[in-house]
Design a protein around this nucleic acid. Structure first.
Lengths: 168, 168
DNA sequence: TCGTGACTAGTCAATACTGACTATAAGGAT
DNA sequence: ATCCTTATAGTCAGTATTGACTAGTCACGA
């Protein structure tokens, strides 16, 4: 359902084709989803079948390969409004895959766990440093980035309290 | 890969069957994964095929229906050690599905967005209050819970800064 | 001008995942 | 006794997802 919201929201701003949609998501919205290219096409096909979007089979412009340009319909806009309100009003938990390792921390002596977690800490720190250099394009992607930076800083702090606890 | 780590880690502590594994994950590790029951069975089958675990077809004890009890092998233990180190040392990003709505915030006037986001805030708050009442069973699940409480508090704070910004 | 790597655009076979189901048992309430 | 609900244990058909691929274009150096 969130994939539909995302694609409808982007198509609403501008008619475009699958490849470009995926590119944009990958570049500016990678903190929200890791949707792969074939998944994007599958969702677009499904939405077309439901009448939320239409497909313009664009004859190759210039001499690029053929491509399909998608346009949102009135039904699609209505669906977007519905999905947006649902997304904004509800809480979607995130899943901390990385905590599965934490759950089995006692399988390792502290002397082994510490350097591994310090490696993790460095990876988070590096990501944070990189994201801070980014300049997001529009209004709302800036919010997304801000939120992710906030989150990563919080993660770093928690990890530091854990590292301290492991140091006894 | 994280699903394998999770199931191996639990089987390592105690031989048990698929249903119980899923129950435990659902109760104490639901912040790490939302793995469904059929997925757990599929992963277990795959690991058995790879020789990481073995299956004891236990004749119905008492008169409960037949069930399969899984036992971790030496190869499984080795794999667990490998997966655990990989998980601890790397950073696995989380995906903020909930930010997809935030990305399209400007599709709504502030007067509409505000009450929706306040509803979301209430949902987070309620979840937080509930989790604070929980008493986790063992050592490590307590860490997991602690981390999730830390995260939810951070989320609440960010959402509050956003709400303030929307209030102009 | 030919080769090489990078970018654009989309596809497909295979795998992963899950909603909805079966079937048995136990614990009440009537 | 019979009915209803909840818990145990697992299955399966159908949908969702993705790694690896095709195929054309562009640009740049040798």
């Amino acid at each position: 359902m969130e994939r539909e919201l995302l694609l409808l929201g982007l198509l609403r701003q501008q008619d475009t084709h699958g490849y470009q949609l995926h590119e944009f998501i990958n570049r500016y919205l990678s903190t929200c989803t890791d949707m792969k290219k074939p998944t994007a096409y599958a969702v677009l096909d499904k939405m077309a079948a439901r009448g939320w979007i239409t497909i313009d089979h664009e004859g190759r412009e210039g001499n690029r390969p053929r491509r399909r340009v998608y346009t949102i319909t009135d039904a699609g806009e209505a669906e977007f409004q519905r999905l947006l309100r649902a997304n904004l009003s509800q809480h979607h938990p995130v899943y901390f895959t990385n905590d599965i390792g934490i759950a089995f921390l006692d399988a390792l002596p502290h002397t082994e766990a510490l350097p591994l977690l310090q490696e993790r800490r460095a990876a988070i720190d590096e990501r944070l440093t990189y994201l801070r250099t980014l300049q997001p394009p529009h209004e709302s992607p800036a919010l997304i980035l801000d939120h992710y930076l906030w989150h990563l800083q919080s993660e770093l702090k928690w990890l530091d309290t854990l590292l301290e606890r492991l140091n006894d």
